[in-house]
Structures are given as C-alpha cells and as structure tokens.
Design a protein around this nucleic acid. Structure first.
Lengths: 207, 207, 207, 207
DNA sequence: AATGAATGAGAATTCATTCAT
DNA sequence: AATGAATGAATTCTCATTCAT
C-alpha cells in the first residue's frame, strides 16, 4: 500500500546523498571519471556504452546510477562546477586582490584547453540539463572575486559580473579549438585583461 | 558563353564545380538553404532527412549532391565563411580604418546570437570537416582589416591576427548561450574592444 | 521554407492511403501478415524484430511503415475489424433474419479459437491504441444484424447492442483458452443464444 | 497451536511449504499482496522491482521466495483461486440452491470488473504457469453449485460444468474492458442467466 | 534470510547510406 | 537526375536474474 518513492526529478536540488554501499560508491566514482573522459573526447554524443566500458562496469550499472544519459551529463557538469567554485573561493580567501580574478580566468581557460569538458558539454547538451544551483554558486564566487578586484582598482568599476562570466565562458569555449596553444592563450587573455583594467588617468573609455 | 571548368583551387579535395543541369543547380541551392536552417536550429545532430524535407527534395537527392553528411556540413560552413569573408573585404575597401575591425567583430557576434549556425557547427561537428581554404580566406581578410586598424592606431601594434581570430570565435560561441541579450553583447564587446585599443601615453601595458 | 508534412497523429482517421510504390505495398502487406501471425502467437509482447524476420525485411522497414509498435498493433486490429465488419454486412444483406446474428456470433468465436488475434490483442495492448472508427463501424454493422433479428422475433426486444457486443467480446476472449474445442464452443454459445431468444408465451423473463 | 506442515497436495510440483521463519512468512505475505496489486494495475508486464518496492522489501527477497517471475504469478493466481473456491463452497453450504450459482457468477464478474487480476493475468501470462490443482479445486466447487442448481430446477439439466466455467471465464475477461459499468454487467449476466434457465414447458430448446 | 548492486540480454527506435524504380 | 524504400548498425533504456555484502 506504500507508494514507491518517486524518482527524484532530474536535476532537482535535493540530491539526497544517501549512504551507498562501498562497491556502489566505488563504481559511481569510476563511472563519473570515465564519463568525464569519454564526453571530453567525443562530446555529448559519445555513447553511454563507451562510458560503461571505460569504467569497467556493465551498461546496466551506469543506468542504475544515472537513470538517463542526461542525468549522467548533469552529474559531470555539477561536479566540475563544484570544483571550479571551490577554486574561486580559495583564491578569494587567499589574499592578493589584484590578481585573483585574472588568475582564475587564466586557470579556467587553461583547463578548458586541456579538457574539452566544461565547454563542450555546455555547448552540446546544455539544453535540458538543469544546473541551476551549481551555476549560481560559481557565479557568486566569481562575483566576490570581481568585487575585490574592483576595490583594489585593477578592474574598471563599471564592469559587471554579467560580462565577466560571458567573457569567461566565451574564452573557455574558444580555448578548445585546435590551434590554441599556450602562447595564443596568453595573448588572447592579455587582450581581455587589458580590456578589464581601468583606463589610466585622463583617458575616457569609449564604450 | 560557358566558361571552361576552372582548375580546382589548390589544396581543395575535388571541389570540381562541374557544370550542373539547371534543376540540379536549383536543388543544390535549396538543399544548402534548408541545411543551414535545419542545422542552425537543431545542431549538427539534426537529421539529413529533415534537411531533405525542408528542401522539398527526396533524401536520395541530398546524398547525390553531398555524398556524406559531413560533406553537407562542410559545404554550409564554407558558404558561410565565404559570405563573412566578402563582408570583411567590403569593410576593408570602404574606408574608415578606425572602425572596420570593430564593426565586423560586432556584426559577427550579433549574427551568431541570432543564428546558431557558425559556432554551433564549429563546436559540434568541427572535427572531421575540412574547411582549410575557406577559413584561411576569412583569416586573411580579417588580417587586412586588422592591419589597417593598427595603422590608424586604434588597435595596439602588438596585437596579432591569431588572437583577434581567437577572440572573435570565442565571443561568437559565447553569444549563442541563452541570456545574451543585446545589452550583454554590447558590454562584453566593450571589454574586448577596450583590450584591443592602444594603452594611452604613459601607461605600461602589463602583459 | 516549406514546412515538412507533419507526421499524421497515431490512429487518426485520415489514413491518407497515398499510392505506394509496388515494392512498398508488397512489403506493407507482408509485414501486416507477419505481425498478425507473430502477435497472435506471442501476444502484444512479441518483438518487432521477430515480425521483421518473419516478414523477411529489415527492422528499419517495419518502422518505416509503422513508426511505432503501437501503430503496427493498431493497423493489424483495424484490418481485422474491417474484415469482421464486412462479414457482418454481408450477412445482413444476405437474407435470413432469423440466423444472421447467431451465425456471425458463432463464426467470430470460432475464428478466435483458431487465432488468438483479436482478443488477445484487445486484452493486452488495448490501452493506448486508438481504434475508434473501426470499432464503431463493426458495432453499427452488428447493430443492424441485431435489429433484424429482433424484428424477426428471434432475439428478445429488450436486449441492447451493448450487451450483445459484450457477450461477443467475452466469448471470443474465452475461446482462446486451452481446452475450448469445437464441442465446448457449441455448448457455450448454445447457452448464450438461449439467453438471447425471447422467453416463450406466458413466461416472465426474470431480469 | 501450530499445525504440522501439511503433506504437499497430490500432483503439485514441490510446493513444499516448509516452515518459515516468522519474518520470512510475513515477507511472503507482503510480497503476495503487493504482487496482486501491482499486476492488477499493470498487467503481467509490470516489473518485479515494482512489486518489491510496494512490498517494502528488497528485490533479492522477492526472488528468494519466488525463484522466477512466473512462480510469483502462479502463486498469486493460486491464492486467488483458493479464495474463490472457498467462496463457492460457502455458498454451497449456505443453502438457497436456487440462487447459489447465479450469485457466485455475478460476484466473480463484479470482482473482475473492479480488479483486473484474475483475467488479465490469465490472458497475459497464462502460458507457462502451472495452476493445475487450484483450477481443478475451483471447478469442483462450482460443479457442486451447478448440481444443486439443477436439482432445484433453476438451471437446465443438460448444461454441463464445462460450459459454465467457460461462460464464467469469458464474462470475467470481458468485464475488465473499459465501458463495463454496473448496468452493462447486469444486462450481460441477465442474458447468460436466461440462457442457463430451463426453457418453460412446451418450448423446445433448439441446440 | 535480507539487502541491494551488478549483470547483460533484449527491446524500441533512429538515421546515415545504398539501391532499385 | 530524382525518387523514396530498404538496410542494418548504433543507441538508449528496461528488467529478470545473480551474487557479494
């Protein structure tokens, strides 16, 4: 007579992290790792079967942990966003208001260049994956970094979080194209960073 | 008077634009138009059948003109790149060295925001599609624009074509994400443009 | 720019019987025949692949003709209902008002006993398959038969089409159970028929 | 006082109701209840996992009690048949020879209409489920009821148990189709009952 | 005995591509 | 050249059943 617990809606924020059996937790991790690798290489179009192979589990196991492919994609991306957010917060607490934002920006772009993950996934499968909270968390963390940078007067006061995020995402997305070597990365960021810095004394910034 | 079949352009693999029957040429055009629309809406994952439907031809006809789906994708993108290249050249011949590069940049980003085409395709199917010549042509055209802008002293002398293209692609890719309204577009570009402009007199640009 | 003709909704009554190519029509027939056989034997749970094998076509061909398994089931059942309806109409036009209804009833039960088709399918997959028109057609045809039988005074006047159909379906469904040999069939129908006949003179039918 | 394990009924294949631990017996009951509910709602295609959920046990527990899904289905149906048989016997011992058979018939059909159980299951999974003894028991009980009804002269003498069972199963099966409301049920049964009653005096029943 | 994770064989469906008409 | 039917591999997802904990 007891109704079965309804499957939690995809992407819901109540990620009830109920304690898993040891083997289950081990597999979950393996699957996430495999998925990150597989989707990084092949984009969201890569097959779930390939993920299972790479993780060394049967296909059914993947689907037991992530009932749909979308759930799996969402899980990877949330994990990634969590790591990034932590990273930003650390930079924010570390000190050096002058470089925090730029450091993070550069670091994220570098990582994108190495792994297609973030961006490729955002571009491909972005639709239909609900990441709400995770994205917001990252945004707020970056917001703090930006505020500090502005207080330290290394970023123009009229720059808003909006466009910083936009530039960040854009540059990361760009970074995964063939031909972006470390040098191009540096030079591209140099332009962006120059654009963020305050125009010196008498210079009217033409917007 | 019918021109003799022109020698295939260097580096292209069998573009042989051999003379087509009138109906065939008409179909080719329709297919390209339909494909651009379909792939813009649904990404490279959209089906070739859908393209055929939209073009009002049978599926076989699509494959007669473009032996593989990849060929079709390549053709669309070449066509697009050609249009862009023409656009740049026009701007270059028009005059106003001071604004050409910025105008083109802004125009392309705006178009990206409206149609997913360029970027979506680059992101999705980029792999395996050979666009060599077309991309080079666009790059050279932009290069000319950049050179003029630098001569007019509205872009820093040490900025290279490389990073301009990188910024262009990145920003376009960013532009198709939800939430990029016209205002965000303007503010994001403002940062990039500010980054491209020469640092006024005594300011040392820290790179 | 021309929108593709939308796939007609499942079970819609506009079965646009557009002229098919010869091979396509041949395959369609083969598939329907195979499907009738396969689903008769294994119930609606039988696999579409099995249908394809039996029909001697590839699985894709089955799905080209019937976009979902449900469509295929609906098609079989409509076909069957059509045959039955024709059968009833013939009996209705033939003459002998006294026996028409009983003959049809018996014939249908006999057929059910031989092939599980009708009933099995109705029972299994009935849900979700829209047969509206086809069923109504059969019902009306039987209604005519019933009316004649009542005018000929071989069926009680107070019997309604409703319960005749109910008895028909029930008996057919029963007929496919193991153990229904011809004799049991005859005896079971005898009871039903006796129940339909008018109670003689002074007998009050206790309902 | 606990009864000793009864000797397994003749003809059954290893029903060995060996004494179970208290919790095991409780689980067995819960599983059976859950299974009846689940399969009634979703037909035999419903998943065993769903049964486990509804019963509040793990899937492994279900399979420990019933090694295959078929075993579980068989168990439900046996249980159901047992209840029905008890019901018939009670009616048989109760008195009122004139109405016993009709009452039971009507009651069973009504129950079918409410719960798909009996019939749906018979139709869906009937194949491969061995119910031998249980069915026989029900049949004998109904046979007794029939004999009494015939002795009381409310059922024709030439009606055999065979066809009574056939009518019963058929009508139950029919009863679960959509549209069988209480009224249709009554009218349909009225025809069947009229068919079972003796033809009054001078009327020759045409069989 | 119970638990619940893992397995892996299907099942339905899609789609690029081929080929007979 | 065009048509559109046929092909069949690939993909996502389900579920009965097994097995380690």
């Amino acid at each position: 007579m007891i109704a079965p617990p309804p499957r939690p809606p995809v992407g819901s924020s109540s990620d009830a992290p109920k304690p898993l059996r040891a083997d289950a937790r081990r597999n979950r991790t393996r699957i996430l790792d495999a998925a990150e690798a597989v989707f990084s290489e092949g984009g969201a179009a890569a097959s779930t079967e390939e993920v299972a192979n790479r993780a060394g589990v049967a296909i059914g196991t993947v689907f037991r942990h992530f009932p749909t492919k979308t759930d799996l994609l969402a899980a990877i991306m949330k994990e990634l966003l969590r790591r990034l957010t932590d990273d930003v917060r650390t930079l924010d607490n570390d000190g050096d208001a002058a470089t925090g934002l730029f450091t993070f920006f550069a670091r994220m772009v570098a990582e994108s260049a190495a792994k297609r993950t973030v961006v490729q996934l955002l571009a491909d499968a972005g639709v239909g994956v609900d990441l709400g909270d995770s994205v917001r968390a990252l945004q707020e963390a970056v917001g703090a970094l930006l505020a500090r940078a502005q207080r330290a007067d290394v970023v123009r006061a009229d720059v808003r979080l909006d466009e910083v995020m936009a530039l960040l995402v854009s540059t990361c997305q760009g970074a995964l194209h063939a031909g972006w070597d470390a040098d191009l990365q540096r030079r591209t960021l140099a332009v962006v960073f120059a654009g963020l810095r305050p125009a010196p004394e008498g210079t009217a910034s033409r917007r």
